[in-house]
C-alpha cells in the first residue's frame, strides 16, 4: 500500500525512508502475519473451523477509494522517539552484518578519522540524541573503520562519509621539514612570549644566537644548557652548528624557545630521535603564559591587604 500511495504521500514522510532496500513494506508484513494466523487456525481448524477460507480471487474487488487511504510512514522507525537515529543505527548494523567478514587492519593502524561529535550529529538529524545512544553508532563506525582501507566497498565509504566531520583535523599535517641546499634544517620554537628560529647544520658545535656567542647572550650557564638541551640530551652537541634568531621575552623564555626550535630542526636531520627528544621534554610546547591581572586583585591572584574599616 505504501508503494501504491507513495505518489500521494507528503514529501516529508517520503524522505523518512532513505534506505528502502533493507526495508520490508508494512503491507507485506501484515499479510504475512495474517496468513500465518490462518495457517495456525487451519492447523487447529480440524478441531474447530469457524468459516471456510475466503477465496479472494472470486471476490470482486472494488477500485480503492482514495479517501479511504491511510498514510503509512516510509520508515519503520517513524513511531520511535528518534526515528532518524534508529534508521541510521539499523542501517549501520546491516552494513556491519554484511561486511563483517572483510579483513581488518591492526587496531592501531586504522586510518585516523574524526567522527562527528554528538552535538554535530544532533544538528544533522535534528533529534535530541543522547550521548550514550550515540556511542552505539560510534562503536559500529569504529569497527567498520577497521576494515582494510583497500577493501572498503564504495557503499560503505559513502555511508561512513555521513558520520565524518566536515573538516578533518588529521588531514592538517605539518609540512615535513627539509634540509635545504646548504644542509640546513629549520625549526621554530616558542616559550612564554619568546620565539626562536633555529637553523641546524652539521658541524663542530659552534653556536651563534642573534649573531652573538652563546656566552654573550646567556650569562647563566643554566640558560646555555637549556638552550642546547635538545642537542645535549641526544649527545649531538658536537655534531651540529646552531644558528638562531630569537626575539621577545626574557632570558629563560628565549633559552627554552631555542630548545624547542633546535629539537624540531634536529628531527629533520634525524627523525628517529623523536622519542628521545620527547623523553628529554623538547617536543611539547609549554603553553603557560603570564596570567592576566584581574579586577579587584593586586596582581593575577593577590588580593589587597585587609584593612579594618
Amino acid at each position: 500500500m505504501a508503494t501504491k500511495l507513495s505518489g500521494a504521500l507528503p514529501y516529508r514522510l517520503l524522505k523518512r525512508c532513505p534506505h528502502c532496500d533493507s526495508h520490508v513494506p508494512r503491507r507485506s508484513q501484515i499479510s504475512l502475519s495474517r496468513q500465518r494466523r490462518q495457517k495456525l487456525s487451519t492447523s487447529q481448524g480440524k478441531l474447530a473451523v469457524a468459516a471456510p477460507e475466503i477465496d479472494l480471487s472470486t471476490i470482486e474487488l472494488k477500485p480503492p477509494n482514495p479517501t479511504h487511504a491511510r498514510i503509512v510512514p516510509a520508515s519503520p522507525s517513524y513511531f520511535t522517539g528518534r526515528p532518524l537515529y534508529i534508521d541510521n543505527l539499523l542501517s549501520l548494523q546491516s552494513l556491519l552484518r554484511k561486511y563483517q567478514t572483510l579483513p581488518t587492519v591492526e587496531p592501531g593502524l586504522a586510518p585516523r578519522v574524526a567522527w562527528k561529535t554528538v552535538s554535530q550529529y544532533r544538528l544533522v538529524v535534528g533529534e535530541p540524541v543522547r550521548p550514550s545512544k550515540y556511542t552505539f553508532v560510534l562503536r559500529i563506525l569504529k569497527r567498520l573503520n577497521q576494515i582494510h582501507p583497500e577493501l572498503v566497498p564504495p557503499e560503505l565509504q559513502d555511508e561512513l562519509q555521513i558520520y565524518k566531520r566536515d573538516v578533518d583535523p588529521f588531514a592538517n599535517r605539518p609540512t615535513p621539514g627539509v634540509i635545504d641546499e646548504f644542509g640546513r634544517s629549520y625549526g621554530v620554537g616558542r616559550r612564554k612570549s619568546s620565539s626562536a628560529k633555529v637553523y641546524l647544520v652539521q658541524g663542530t658545535g659552534e653556536v651563534l644566537i642573534n649573531g652573538k656567542s652563546i656566552t654573550t647572550v646567556f650569562g647563566r650557564i643554566h640558560d646555555r644548557e637549556s638552550a642546547l638541551w635538545a642537542l645535549k640530551a641526544t649527545g649531538r652537541i658536537d655534531k651540529y652548528n646552531v644558528w638562531a634568531l630569537v626575539t621577545g621575552g626574557g632570558t629563560t623564555g628565549q633559552a627554552e624557545a631555542i630548545t624547542l626550535g633546535a629539537a624540531k630542526a634536529l628531527m629533520v636531520h634525524e627523525p628517529a630521535l623523536k622519542p628521545a627528544l620527547r623523553r628529554a621534554g623538547c617536543i611539547t610546547r609549554d603553553p603557560r603564559r603570564v596570567e592576566r591581572k584581574k579586577p579587584g586583585h593586586v596582581k593575577a591572584r593577590k588580593m589587597p591587604t585587609w584593612v579594618k574599616r
Binding site: 663542530t204 658545535g205 659552534e206 653556536v207 656567542s213 652563546i214 656566552t215 654573550t216 650557564i221 646555555r224 644548557e225 642546547l228 642537542l231 645535549k232 649527545g235 652537541i237 658536537d238
Partner: peptide
C-alpha cells in the same frame, strides 16, 4: 672524553677559557 669536551666547549661559547673554567670547575 670527546663528548664532554665537545659539550663544554660549545657551552663556553667556543672555548672561552673563563667560561670553560666556570662551567667545569667553579659551578
Amino acid at each position: 672524553d670527546e663528548r664532554l669536551v665537545g659539550e663544554k666547549w660549545s657551552l663556553s661559547g667556543g672555548g672561552i677559557v673563563g667560561e670553560l673554567e666556570r662551567g667545569c670547575i667553579r659551578m
